[in-house]
Design a protein around this nucleic acid. Structure first.
Length: 553
RNA sequence: GCGCCCAUAGCUCAAUUGGAUAGAGUGCCGGACUUCGAAUCCGUUGGUUGCAGGUUCGAGUCCUGCUGGGCGCGCCA
């Protein structure tokens, strides 16, 4: 990438200048920072490195910068390198190189934007909501984030697997099963109370009725425990199927659905417990089994197996991550969690150390919770109490593309209000349509030019300001992918896509693409190449966010 | 009480993880269709980056202390 080559060139220039005595000898920094100036008029790239070096060189930053510029090697893409106060070097790309990038993009319609940030197998585990009811808006943010992060990492060169962890083993599940049994029995006219700790939402009534309708009263004739088990299994199946469907509505598909229960039936739990015991990280008191997290920087020791003999969710998490890293050999694992789980992070880091794994290999993305609103009124998200607005309802009302864009366009750290009514009212002014409209417009132009062959178009004719501005935006995609993949922050994509669309719309205003004027044939062909390339970049940016790139709207 | 996150234009949010004059959208006001899609474009308005210190060539960004909000602190998940 250009910035990497610039960094190398600057390092080389510093060395040369030192060798020739233009600069005193001092240790060169390991990496030369190259950035994009905030104000585009200053140039395409800049480095502030000379200001950082001033103290070591004991020279004015501007003088260092001058020396660097003088000793800069020839670079094919560079038009100019200028020193600016108080010590920046501003680089400008050559127009011929810029226009040539249009051909580069056209040559890689599927892969433009991909970078080689690293290699290895990465697992992204996301959503993983308790299978005790329909998915809600918190899960929607999780889904949008996780899926986009996975896509970004794929584009950054990693081998990625998307995984959904089904929490089908905990005590919450028992409450779900018992609630379902009660609702089933009620549907058949029997007076069966919903447990206090159970799930009181209306969806449980419907689920109970559904099973009553499909299976009839046969479970009422069984012993209670057995009936709960069988009904529970049916209910679990239905909830998972529903989650799969709901996520598919958002365009999200997983490589793997992993059962928590399987950790116990397949032996991972026993193996990891043996390992922890051998390493001295287990403690036994008060009838429970404890994980000595305090030995590893955790805030307190944690119960793994309760005094009644049942393993807690942390036990499962240890076994699960043992499975991820040691049995399946992922190089890196990314877990996407709601901020309400933030207290769990130190335990997980301690667990990594106990397993002898570098804690850095487990990255936990915490996103702040979504406050769902309807006409300005807050809607509660809890599944345990009463009614909820489901992910499905919102997708059906707002549309998958708009929902994804909205959920992605804020950094995970910021809290979010999602007002459904507002989202619907604003749908015409929504950035989603702005971006997609640019894509559809290009498709329309290409349809209009149908039959015209432009393979021989000469991109070097694309020298007007709006054309070059558009190309400048287009070639940013790889940088944005790299940045977003590094930070695991897809919101950069959302902003970028908007800016790219804006550059296209401005170009469209100023430059007629398909012209019937005599003598315009050459520029028409060149511009058809330009918009074709722009379409590729827009589609890729939208694709990475999981959004569609419509040809007509 | 302790921990994590947040506070930036009237509103919703960015700011390339310490760089140059803090930017978009939205809202208000005004303007542009006889040619490829007006779901578009152009212009105007908008700031003591919550407060007080500190670190340095340079701070919205880092450190300390406040204020205000969200989320946690269970043998729940």
């Amino acid at each position: 990438m250009v910035d990497i080559e610039l960094a190398k060139a600057v390092a080389q220039a510093l060395k040369r200048a030192q060798k020739k005595g233009a600069l005193p000898h001092f240790e060169l920094p390991e990496t030369i920072p190259i950035e994009r100036p905030k104000q585009g008029e200053l140039g395409d790239f800049a480095t502030p490195v000379c200001m950082q070096l001033a103290r070591f060189a004991r020279m004015a930053p501007v003088r260092i910068a001058e020396a660097v510029v003088q000793h800069l090697p020839e670079l094919p893409f560079l038009a100019s390198a200028e020193v600016a106060h108080p010590g920046f070097i501003n680089f400008r790309l050559s127009e011929s190189w810029l226009t040539a990038q249009v051909e580069e993009i056209l040559a890689q319609p599927e892969s433009f934007g991909s970078v080689q940030l690293g290699t290895g197998r990465v697992q992204v585990e996301f959503v993983s909501a308790n299978p005790t009811g329909p998915l809600h808006m918190g899960s929607a943010r999780n889904a949008a984030l996780g899926d986009a992060i996975a896509s970004l990492l794929e584009a950054a060169g990693y081998q990625v697997e998307r995984e959904y962890y089904i929490n089908d083993a905990g005590s919450r599940m028992q409450a779900f099963y018992e609630t379902l049994y009660a609702r089933y029995a009620q549907a058949l006219g029997r007076d069966e109370p919903v447990p206090e700790e159970g799930y009181h939402g209306a969806y449980m009534v419907r689920l109970g009725e559904e099973i009553a309708r499909e299976c009839g009263p046969r479970f009422l004739k069984m012993p209670r425990e057995e009936a709960i088990r069988e009904i529970g299994a049916l209910g679990l199946k239905k909830v998972i199927a529903q989650a799969k469907e709901d996520l598919a509505l958002m365009g999200i598909h997983y490589d793997n659905w992993f059962s928590e229960q399987s950790l116990y039936t397949n032996g991972q739990f026993d193996r990891v417990m043996t390992l922890l015991r051998e390493r001295g990280y287990l403690d036994f008191h008060d009838g429970a089994v404890w994980f000595k997290a305090t030995l590893l920087g955790g805030p307190k020791d944690e119960v793994i197996v309760r005094s009644d003999g049942t393993p807690g969710y942390f036990a499962s998490d240890i076994a699960y991550h043992y499975n991820k890293f040691i049995e399946r050999g992922f190089d890196r694992v990314i877990d996407v969690w709601g901020a309400d789980h933030q207290g769990h992070v130190p335990r997980m880091k301690a667990m990594m150390k106990a397993l002898g794994l570098d804690p850095e290999r487990l990255v936990i993305i915490l996103y702040q919770l979504v406050t769902l609103k309807r006409r300005g009124e807050i809607v509660r998200l809890s599944k345990r109490t009463g009614d909820i607005i489901t992910l499905r309802e919102v997708v059906e009302e707002v549309g998958a593309d708009a929902m994804r864009y909205f959920l992605l366009s804020r950094s995970a750290d910021s809290q979010m209000d999602f007002d459904i009514e507002l989202a619907k009212e604003q749908s015409e002014e929504n950035p989603v349509y702005y971006i997609q409209y640019a894509h559809a417009r290009i498709c329309s132009i290409l349809r209009h030019a149908k039959g015209m062959s432009f393979d021989d178009g000469d991109v070097s004719l694309l020298t007007s300001e709006p054309e070059l501005a558009l190309i400048r935006q287009m070639i940013r995609l790889p940088e944005v992918v790299r940045l977003a993949a590094r930070q695991l922050a897809p919101h950069h994509l959302a902003y970028y896509a908007y800016e790219l669309a804006a550059a296209f719309h401005a170009f469209y205003r100023d430059c007629r693409v398909v012209s019937s004027e005599p003598g315009d044939e050459a520029i028409t062909k060149a511009r058809l190449k330009l918009v074709s390339a722009c379409r590729i970049v827009l589609a890729r940016a939208l694709g990475l966010m999981g959004m569609s790139a419509p040809e007509v709207m």
